[in-house]
Design a binder for these strands. Structure first.
Length: 227
DNA sequence: AACTAGTACAACCGCATCGGT
DNA sequence: GACCGATGCGGTTGTACTAGT
C-alpha cells in the first residue's frame, strides 16, 4: 500500500493528507479535544501504533479547514459573496473575523475565494469602468466640475470628494463600495489602490452616472456579470 | 495527443499574540 | 515582569485540474 509505505518512510509528514490520516486525526480530536494540538500530535504515538505523523500546527489546520463538523464544502453563494465583500470593505483582510460571520466557512476558504474570484471580478469591473471613462473623455470636463478629488484626503483614509454637493458618490472605488482603508490593507489590494489612484484623475463616478441606484450591494448583478 | 497557461484550493511558513509558569 | 511554548492569523507557495492551442 502506497500510503503505508510513505508513512513508514517518513518522520514528520508534510503535504496533502491521506484519508487514513484524516480518520486518525478525527479519532484523536474526538478523544482529546481540539485545543492542545502539539500534545495531540505527540501522544498519538508513532504511525505503527496508529499515531499521526504530523506537527500540531498541521493537525490544527487540517481540522479547522477541512475536518471539523459543520464545515460547508462547495460553492460560495451570492449572499455569502456579498457578505464577504461587505465585511472586507469594513475590516480589510481580517479573514478570521470575516469567517466568524459566515458559519461553516473558514478563513482560508474566504481568503482563497477573495483572491481567486472577487479580486478578479473587481479588476474586471474597474477595467470596464475605465474603458467607459475613456470613451466618455469628452464629457469629463463637465463632470469634473462636480467631482473634485482630493488626493490628500484620499490617502488619509477619507475617501470623499471635496465638493459633494451633487449628493452622489464619487471615484471608481466608491462606486464599487471600497474604502481606501480596505483597499490599501494588503499587497494585492495595494494594486487596486495604485490603479484607483491613477484612474481617479480621469475616471467618472459610477454612481454619478447611475444616480438612481444607491444600493451599494445592488450592483452584484450588473457589474459582476460583465462576461 | 501533447504541451502550455491559467485557475482553484489545500497546505505551509513566519510572525504576532496569548497563556501558563 | 520575563520567558517560553502553544495557538491564531495572514501571506505565500505548491500542485492538481482544466481549458485552450
Amino acid at each position: 500500500m502506497v500510503y503505508k509505505a510513505v508513512m513508514q518512510g517518513e518522520k514528520l509528514r508534510k503535504g496533502p493528507w491521506y484519508e487514513e490520516e484524516d480518520k486518525q486525526l478525527i479519532t484523536f480530536v474526538t478523544i482529546l479535544g481540539d485545543r492542545k494540538w502539539d500534545y495531540l500530535a505527540r501522544v498519538s504515538g508513532p504511525y505503527d501504533s496508529g499515531g499521526i505523523k504530523r506537527c500540531g500546527k498541521s493537525c490544527r489546520l487540517r481540522w479547522l479547514n477541512y475536518l471539523r463538523p459543520n464545515i460547508k464544502h462547495g460553492d460560495i453563494s451570492i449572499e455569502e459573496e456579498q457578505i464577504i465583500l461587505q465585511l472586507h470593505e469594513q475590516w480589510g483582510n481580517k479573514w478570521a473575523r470575516i469567517a466568524r460571520s459566515l458559519p461553516g466557512r473558514t478563513d482560508n476558504e474566504i481568503k482563497n475565494y477573495w483572491r481567486t474570484h472577487l479580486r478578479r471580478k473587481i479588476m474586471q469591473a474597474r477595467e470596464q469602468e475605465n474603458l467607459q471613462c475613456a470613451r466618455e473623455d469628452g464629457k469629463q470636463d463637465f463632470l469634473f466640475q462636480k467631482v473634485d478629488f482630493d488626493v490628500q484626503t484620499y490617502e488619509a483614509g477619507e475617501h470623499k470628494p471635496v465638493d459633494d454637493t451633487s449628493g452622489t458618490s464619487n471615484t471608481c472605488s466608491d462606486a464599487l463600495g471600497f474604502s481606501s482603508s480596505a483597499v490599501t490593507n494588503s499587497p494585492y489590494d495595494v494594486r487596486f489602490f495604485d490603479w484607483d489612484y491613477n484612474c481617479t484623475e480621469s475616471c467618472i463616478s459610477y454612481t454619478a452616472r447611475n444616480s438612481d441606484d444607491n444600493d451599494v450591494w445592488g450592483w452584484s448583478d450588473s457589474i459582476w456579470d460583465m462576461n
